[in-house]
Computed example of a mutant assay.
Amino acid sequence: MSNGNARNWHASDGLVARYADGSLPEPDAWSLEKHVEGCAGCAARVSRAVHGTAAGAVLAQVRESVLAAAVLKPAPVRQVTPEAPPAPAPPRLARLLWAVGPAVRGAWLPAVLLVAVGAMALGYGGGFPDARALLLAVAPVVPVAGVALSYGPHADPLYEVVAATPAGGLRLALTRTAAVLGVSLPLLTVAGLLLPASGAPAAAAWLLPGLALTLGSLALASFVGCRTASGVTAGGWLCAVLAPVSAAPADGAGARLAEQLSRCLDGTGTQGAWAAAAVLSTALLVVRRPAYDRLMHS
């Protein structure tokens, strides 16, 4: 698919011909469509090739019909005057909010704020000394939930439109995951720093586990879908942390939770294991990348 170096490649004649007759595999077609957005030469060659097919004749008829309708009923022309400048392009912030997805745009962001503020209220307003331990138990599953809420037809009203673009698939999932992590990691960590320790692990001890659980959810999603994968990873974490606490007496539940969190979060070996899990999940994501193209269209 290249003529030239990696930074300056152009579509070959055979590739253009296969695209025009519809025999090019879908991932390669998406790659070519993405390339012609910034390459006028290849765009012109693809256009000529498509015009020479049966589909090109149909497109030409459609174009003529649209132009004829425009002549019969022209669209109103907005006068450009010093008092009425041209309409500005959509701001970058609006495009960014669309890209990062429903999790950051919708109810998820207030939910993260509620978790952080609720922990602060328990710690200082409610006299609950184990508020940091409770926050650390919940924090690793917050980004997992954010990813589940930001990706897929159940969450995104523009899902079908996005699925038809070259920017879909794993690239879109990673963009929205980065947005979710960029909001939740600093916000919940700062909230943990402001809470009294009371025997709980450090406020930043959950960062690697949260990252590993999120990447693990993405990797598992290539097999079973985002919602199921998020439920498995989040549920597994909560069971591992909270199950031992359920057997403790009521007056010792906070201390038991802090003890269990220390096992799951504290220590070089434990953090190293979480880092290894994050690396393995990333490697599995690379291997399973084509599955995200099917996931977008399933």
Rank of each mutant, 00 (worst) to 15 (best):
L93Y: 02
P153E: 06
E64N: 07
A84N: 14
L109Q: 14
G125L: 09
A258P: 07
G118L: 03
V162I: 15
V141N: 02
L32C: 04
S217H: 11
P166Q: 08
V16P: 05
V112I: 06
A200W: 11
G106I: 13
R132L: 07
C39E: 11
Y124F: 14
V224N: 08
S150T: 13
E26H: 08
P186T: 01
A57G: 15
L172R: 08
V80C: 01
N8H: 12
A234F: 05
V50C: 07
A49E: 06
A75H: 11
C226Y: 11
A68S: 03
H10P: 08
P249N: 11
L187T: 15
A121I: 09
M1V: 10
V279C: 02
Y159E: 12
R45M: 06
L135G: 03
G231P: 03
W274Y: 07
L149K: 07
A17W: 12
A20Q: 09
A70Y: 03
V287D: 00
T270M: 09
L194A: 13
D21L: 03
G231M: 07
E259H: 09
L195Y: 12
A99I: 14
R227I: 14
F128S: 02
A178C: 11
L136V: 04
L211W: 12
A44C: 08
Y159C: 03
D130A: 14
P290V: 15
P74E: 15
Q61G: 12
G56Y: 11
T282S: 08
Q79P: 00
L59Y: 05
G169R: 04
P290S: 14
G52E: 14
A11G: 08
A167Q: 05
T233Q: 02
L284K: 01
A89T: 00
A179F: 00
A200N: 10
A203Q: 12
G52V: 10
C42I: 08
S65P: 00
A17C: 13
V100K: 00
G126T: 13
L134Q: 05
L15T: 02
A131F: 07
M296V: 13
A283I: 03
V183W: 08
V104S: 06
V36D: 04
T53A: 11
A203G: 04
L134K: 01
H297I: 14
A155Q: 04
A219D: 03
V245C: 07
R63P: 00
A240I: 00
G210I: 04
L242A: 09
S262T: 07
P143N: 10
H154Y: 05
A273M: 09
P91Q: 04
A277K: 00
A212C: 06
G182S: 11
G252E: 07
V183S: 01
A29C: 12
A57F: 13
L208M: 14
R289W: 04
L170I: 05
V50H: 06
D13H: 12
S12D: 10
S2A: 11
G14F: 10
A60C: 04
A121T: 02
A229N: 07
L188H: 01
L158H: 13
